[in-house]
Write a protein that binds this DNA or RNA. Sequence first.
DNA 1: ATATAAAGTGAATTCATATTCATTTTCTGA
DNA 2: TCAGAAAATGAATATGAATTCACTTTATAT
Lengths: 203, 203
Amino acid sequence: MAFKRSPLMEDRLANNRQRILQSARSLVASGGFRAAQMGAVAAEAGLSTGSIYRYFPSKAELFVEVLNQAAAHEVEVLDAAIAQGSDAHDCLRRAVAAFAQRAFDGPFLAYAFIAEPAEPEVDAARIAVRRMFGTVFHKLIRRGIRRGEFPQQNAGIAAACVVGAFTEALIGPIGATGKRNLQREAIVESICDFCVSAVGNKA
Amino acid sequence: MAFKRSPLMEDRLANNRQRILQSARSLVASGGFRAAQMGAVAAEAGLSTGSIYRYFPSKAELFVEVLNQAAAHEVEVLDAAIAQGSDAHDCLRRAVAAFAQRAFDGPFLAYAFIAEPAEPEVDAARIAVRRMFGTVFHKLIRRGIRRGEFPQQNAGIAAACVVGAFTEALIGPIGATGKRNLQREAIVESICDFCVSAVGNKA
DNA sequence: ATATAAAGTGAATTCATATTCATTTTCTGA
DNA sequence: TCAGAAAATGAATATGAATTCACTTTATAT
């Protein structure tokens, strides 16, 4: 007779898969790619290293999925933040703030988005992710230009600059110990000022 | 009797050392850290792998020196560009343009400055290098503020944003093949506009 | 209850590089 | 020209991490 997994079992498996993804993300978030070895991921997920390979064919594919999942979530958050804004300036400020706040909380994960990864496959995924973020800001800036709220400019470059600006500004503080929460709001605000000013005014 | 290296020999050794550094840099520049294995470096320098270790105690220390040497050179170029500027706006524009132009020519090397490297020691050096670049812009912006040419702002954050903005904007185009030289000037100019506008105007 | 299929295990294997070291070659001083 | 000191070599070794696989455990169907 054909073998059929019970719904309960099916659930548990799906659960394991998800837990593996979460473990991998959490390891990257707390220690970068370096800390996310297959053995560590397995231990974190409460499985053996071998089992991971029942769920993912290779390390590369696992991390591609981690990246995509994380990115999709960020884009959702970003879109939600934008939806609440009034005019283009406000939308931009909200989007940058949302991203910056979150990057502050999970600096290593944010870092992973721009880090040179080990596997070429992950590299490709990373580039796609950056493009996704860029696209969100690109649309926002284009719309602002179309409505006359932003001056004429190269929206693609500006979008990349925005992403780069807050990424760099946020990664710097990672090194600085302590004092993070103290200055957090001030830092985020400075970054927002920078980006809004860059896109909103032309000398 | 005491052994003494002849000046000629001394020269040749210093030459070897320098050539190793150059080979390492050139490999990073053309294929990233990934392509810069000890064996490849040795081959490129016309030496055996073992010999490298007469000049550098480890891969990490070799690459720390590569990074520092490259960074010191970039800072020189940056300072020279700034020295030619008239007012603060002009200096900033020149500095950004100089950096961007050079990054365009050696994208992988520029990339290495923000890439997550294998060795923790190199990682530390990389952070120091970023700080160096940040410092150059930080001084520039502070001076502009002091002279009333730039509005009041958090100079440290703004400097980081500037570095991040052009790095990201430049790395994007690496992936895109061809069309680089065509748009090169336009891209660099857009990046300069972005940065100058961000620092020079406040909404 | 038993047989079979799937899932889980973790030690062993593979793979890719950095590093070492016994040996060879080249240099220096008499 | 020769002995001893450096320097160079590259095959062998060490390291570290991904992947496999022979075996154990758990789940499903009769």
